[in-house]
Design a protein around this nucleic acid. Structure first.
Lengths: 142, 142
DNA sequence: TTCGAATCATTCAAGCTGCAAATATTTGGT
DNA sequence: ACCAAATATTTGCAGCTTGAATGATTCGAA
């Protein structure tokens, strides 16, 4: 069964809407849980992605945002003493971000909250694997 | 084959990141094309979703954003004479949004631009159908 | 080695976004 | 018909995000 180019275009448009819709729903979920910890959504996202020491750029990539934005977010986290900017061991241009003890503890709590009743819980683990594969392919393709 | 609850949680987290990453990429694509028409990304998204007359709330739902945000965006589009707020035929609370001739023409051009080299072009039509199904299920589930 | 290009981070301006509150209108139960 | 609850939109505010410009540092080719 083939599809006309025309309906193919429409299908792609709908798909974009669905991706965006799900992303919004995930963001809302994060916002909601983050609020209970006194964090904004973007602060929580940053904290979630800080699985270990990394540079600003690395964090930006993990958060899928511009580096200038991570400057803004890390500023906030630093004011709350959740993360610290250390000099990078090998590159004096870069910063080495590390979580404080407080930051690590809060991150643990956050991850627990986020795991409960996630927006993806409507999908079986198997479906999630399929979805993962498709998204990876879509993102990777050049 | 079963997965431990622990790795399941991690997989879900990664999946959220992927969804967000793809959504960002789509947004960037829109931003890029919109700019060539003198539109911002959100203005373009609104225009794209205006397939016919609709209320503010309807537009908000299609854009996956808050109604207050559509007020902001429609204000801009109205200033550019691309859309008009008419009284709603049956509900005096609501507005009936309609594209002007200019708006309709610009929308056509926008759709053409967006269709070229979309971020989802890395997926076959069949893969896109599968993705569509999965996303719909994820979004629909309650 | 040296210099130009690339990379890391930051600042600033402009625009986007969600949330809570306010107004206007409609709806449903009595 | 009446009124409380629900709904549609807007406003104001606080926070988020991008893109361009800047300064510091590193990299690579001549």
């Amino acid at each position: 069964m083939t599809t006309s180019p025309e309906s193919q275009v429409i299908a792609e448009r709908q798909l974009c809407g669905l991706v965006n819709g799900l992303a919004q729903r995930i963001a809302e979920h994060v916002r909601e849980r983050a609020a209970t910890l006194g964090l904004t959504a973007s602060q929580a996202t940053a904290l979630r992605e800080m699985s270990g020491p990394m540079t600003m750029r690395e964090l930006a990539e993990r958060m899928s945002c511009e580096p200038s934005n991570t400057t803004f977010v890390v500023d906030k986290l630093e004011k709350q003493r959740l993360v610290e900017r250390h000099p990078h061991p090998t590159d004096r241009r870069a910063k080495h971000l590390v979580l404080t003890a407080e930051g690590t503890a809060l991150r643990e709590r956050l991850l627990e909250l986020l795991a409960v009743d996630s927006p993806l819980s409507g999908l079986t683990p198997e479906d999630q694997r399929v979805l993962h594969g498709l998204l990876e392919q879509a993102v990777t393709r050049r």
